[in-house]
C-alpha cells in the first residue's frame, strides 16, 4: 500500500531524510517511532503529496506521490502534526467543507456521521475556536476519516487527548486498520506496542529497526529474562542460580526479586524451579521480563548516535 524507496529530503543544506526505504501492506497498522527531528513528519508530508522528495520515490495505493499526486491525495486521509483547522468555522461546517473538497455526495450527512464517530456530535455547531485542544484534535481526526480513505496517515494522533479519548481513538484506529493501511507516528511507545502490527524506528532520517514489537524485543535482547520472587530472604539465591547449567547471568533486583537470563531455546525454568524448591526456598512467582519498547528505543537510537560520532 505504501512503498518508499531511497527517499531523501534536504531542507536547504540540512538533510532530513537520507535514503529511507520501507513498505507496508494492506490492513497493516504501522507505527513510526523516532526522537524529535528524526524525519517522521517529513516522510508523512512527502507521502501525502504536500511536498516532493529531493531524491527517491514513493507510491501510495499504487500511485506515485509526485507524478500522480492527485490520485494519491484522493486515497489518503491525513492528520498533520499541527491540526489544520479554521477556528472561525463550526465543526460541522468545517467537515462539510472537507467533504465537499473530497466530492462526497450528501456532504452534510457524512460530516455529521464522522463527528459522531469521534464523539463530537453534541458540539457540531460550536465554533472550532471554542473547542478544547483534545476536541480540536478529534475534529482533525474526523477530517482525515471523512472519505473513508484507503490509507490513513496520522502524525501523533493521540497527543493532547485525555486517557478515555486515547482509548477511543486507538480503538477507532485499530478498527480502521483491519481493512485499511494506517501509518502513525507517536512518541508513546506503549501505544505503538498496543495498536501497531509493525514498528519502524527512525533516527536522523534513517530506519534503524523495523519489525513487530515482539520480534524487536526478542531480537535485541538475544536472551530471555525471567524474574522470580521467593518468600523471605533471597540472599544467596543468585549464586545458587548461577550454578545451574544454562543460566547465563543472575542478579538481585532492587525490589527484592531476582532476575536471571538464559539463551533462547534452552528453557531452564523447570530446572530452576526444582532447584530452588529443593534448596528450601518458597517460590512465589516466576515471570518473563520483556525488554520494554522504551528500552529498545533508547538502545537503538543511542547506538546510532555512537556510530555517528565515530
Amino acid at each position: 500500500m505504501i512503498r518508499v524507496e531511497g527517499l531523501t529530503k534536504d531542507y536547504g543544506s540540512r538533510r532530513a531524510l537520507s535514503d529511507l526505504s520501507f513498505e507496508t501492506g494492506q490492513g497493516e497498522v504501522v507505527g513510526f517511532l523516532g526522537p524529535n527531528g528524526a524525519g517522521k513528519t517529513t516522510t508523512m508530508r512527502i507521502l501525502t503529496g504536500y511536498m516532493p522528495p529531493t531524491e527517491g520515490s514513493a507510491t501510495v495505493a499504487g500511485y506515485d506521490v509526485v507524478t500522480e499526486s492527485l490520485e494519491v491525495r484522493k486515497r489518503v486521509g491525513y492528520l498533520p502534526e499541527t491540526v489544520p483547522l479554521y477556528t472561525d468555522m463550526t465543526a460541522l461546517d468545517y467537515l462539510k467543507f472537507m467533504a465537499d473538497l473530497r466530492q462526497i455526495p450528501d456532504s452534510e450527512e457524512r460530516a455529521f456521521e464522522t463527528l459522531e464517530m469521534v464523539g463530537l456530535d453534541s458540539r457540531a455547531n460550536s465554533f472550532i475556536g471554542s473547542l478544547s485542544k483534545g476536541m480540536r484534535q478529534r475534529v482533525g481526526l474526523a477530517q482525515a476519516l471523512i472519505h473513508e480513505p484507503e490509507v490513513l496517515i496520522l502524525d501523533e494522533p493521540t497527543i493532547g487527548l485525555d486517557p478515555g479519548q486515547v482509548v477511543e481513538v486507538r480503538n477507532i484506529i485499530r478498527e480502521i486498520g483491519k481493512q485499511r493501511t494506517v501509518l502513525l507516528s507517536t512518541h508513546i511507545l506503549s501505544e505503538a506496542q498496543q495498536i501497531c502490527d509493525r514498528v519502524l524506528i527512525i533516527n536522523k532520517g534513517k530506519i534503524v529497526a523495523e519489525d513487530t514489537p515482539e520480534n524487536l524485543q526478542a531480537r535485541l535482547v538475544g536472551s530471555e529474562r525471567v524474574s522470580l520472587r521467593v518468600r523471605g530472604d533471597s540472599d544467596g539465591l543468585s549464586k545458587l542460580l548461577m550454578k545451574i547449567k544454562g543460566v547465563q547471568s543472575a542478579h538481585n533486583a532492587p525490589d527484592g526479586s531476582v532476575e536471571f537470563q538464559f539463551a533462547p531455546g534452552q528453557d531452564v525454568r523447570p530446572l530452576v524451579a526444582k532447584t530452588i524448591v529443593n534448596s528450601g526456598y518458597e517460590l512465589l512467582e516466576m515471570r518473563p521480563v520483556g525488554l520494554s519498547l522504551e528500552e529498545i528505543f533508547l538502545e537503538l537510537t543511542r547506538e546510532d548516535a555512537h556510530r555517528g560520532k565515530k
Binding site: Y50, R73, P80, P84, L85, M98, L101, Q103
Partner: peptide, 14 residues
C-alpha cells in the same frame, strides 16, 4: 500562517 495550507495542499485539489 495557521497551517491550514497543509490541509488544502494534501486535499485532491489542484
Amino acid at each position: 500562517r495557521t497551517g491550514t495550507m497543509e490541509l488544502l495542499l494534501t486535499a485532491p485539489l489542484r
